[in-house]
Design a protein around this nucleic acid. Structure first.
Lengths: 154, 154
DNA sequence: TATTGTTATACTCTATAACTATA
DNA sequence: TATAGTTATAGAGTATAACAATA
C-alpha cells in the first residue's frame, strides 16, 4: 500500500480524499511518534506519566505555580493535574505550600530531589528534540513553531 | 502565566528548558486540538471512533485493502483494526470477502451504505482542514507537510 | 453562589497474550 | 513454524459529577 509514497500507491486515484494528506491525521501521527516516543523514555526510566512530566516541567519553569494555571497552560484537565501533583508529592519531588491569602489554592515548587529529577530529564528531552529537529530543515522547524503558535492559541 | 506569550511570562528565565518550545509537546497539543477536535465532530454526528474513521477512510481510498495493510499504513495496532472492522461490518458499511488464495485474510470494501457515509464525512473533513489551513501561511502548510513526510516515515 | 482542588464512579481504551485458522 | 485476524483479560487512562473547603 505504501502510504508514504502516494505516487506509487495503487488505486487511490479515485480522487476524493486522502487521509495521508489530512492535517489532523498528520498531526496525530506526528504526536504519536514524537510525544509518545519520548513518553516511552521517561516512563520506563523514571516511571513518569505524560501529565506528571508536563506538571514537573511546568513547576520547574514557573516556580510557585498553581494547579489551575498548569491545567490552563498545558492542556491538562484539572483532575489530571490533581493526580499528577499527588503522585509527584508522594514521590517527594515537589512541595505544596497553601496560599495563605486564598487557602483553596497552593503554590507548587520543586524539592531538591525534584530539581535533580528535572536535571536528569532535561538533557534527555533536548537530545530527543535534537534528533527530531536534525531531520528537518530550519525552515520546516520554524514553520512548525509558528504553526504551533497559530493553531494552539485560541 | 501566559504560556502563549513567552516574552511576557514571569520567571521562566532560569533558562534551562521550556516545555512550550519542545517539539514533541507542541505536536501533542496540535494533535489534541485538531485530530481530537475533528474526532468530536464525527463521534457525535456518526458515532465513529478514531480507528473506525481511519479504517473507513482507508477502505474508501484503497478498495479491497486487507486489515494488515491498514494497520501498517495507519499507525493502528491490529487489535484496533480488528475491532473497527467488526464494528463497521455490524453497521453494514463495509463488506468482507475472504481471499480464496489465502483464507487467513480478507479484502475489505465499502457497501453502498458505506459509500454514503464516507460521502458525508469527506466534506466535513475538508471543511475542517480548510479552517485550519486558512490560519497558516502557504509556507507553513508546505513545511508541515514535508515535516510530516520526513518524521512519519521510518 | 462561585471557585480550587479532590475523590468516586463508570466507562473506554489499549497492551498483552492466548487462541483459531490457515499457510 | 509462521502469519492473519480474533478474543480475553487486565490495567491504565479519562470524563463526569459529586464533594469539601474556601471565597
Amino acid at each position: 500500500m505504501r502510504a508514504t509514497k502516494p505516487e506509487t500507491a495503487a488505486p487511490a486515484s479515485h480522487g476524493t480524499f486522502r487521509l495521508e494528506d489530512f492535517l489532523p491525521y498528520q498531526l496525530a501521527v506526528l504526536a504519536d511518534i514524537t510525544s509518545a516516543g519520548f513518553a516511552r523514555v521517561y516512563e520506563e526510566r523514571f516511571g513518569l506519566s505524560i501529565p506528571e512530566w508536563r506538571v514537573l516541567a511546568t513547576i520547574a519553569e514557573v516556580p510557585r505555580v498553581r494547579a489551575k494555571e498548569i491545567g490552563a497552560a498545558r492542556h491538562l484537565p484539572k483532575t489530571a493535574v490533581s493526580r499528577a501533583v499527588a503522585s509527584l508529592r508522594r514521590r517527594g519531588v515537589i512541595k505544596v505550600d497553601v496560599n495563605r491569602a486564598d487557602k483553596r489554592e497552593s503554590f507548587l515548587s520543586l524539592t531538591p530531589k525534584g530539581r535533580d529529577l528535572h536535571a536528569q530529564l532535561v538533557p534527555l528531552a533536548l537530545d530527543y528534540a535534537r534528533t527530531l529537529t536534525n531531520r528537518l530543515s530550519p525552515q520546516e522547524r520554524l514553520a512548525l513553531q509558528s504553526a504551533y503558535e497559530r493553531l494552539a492559541n485560541d
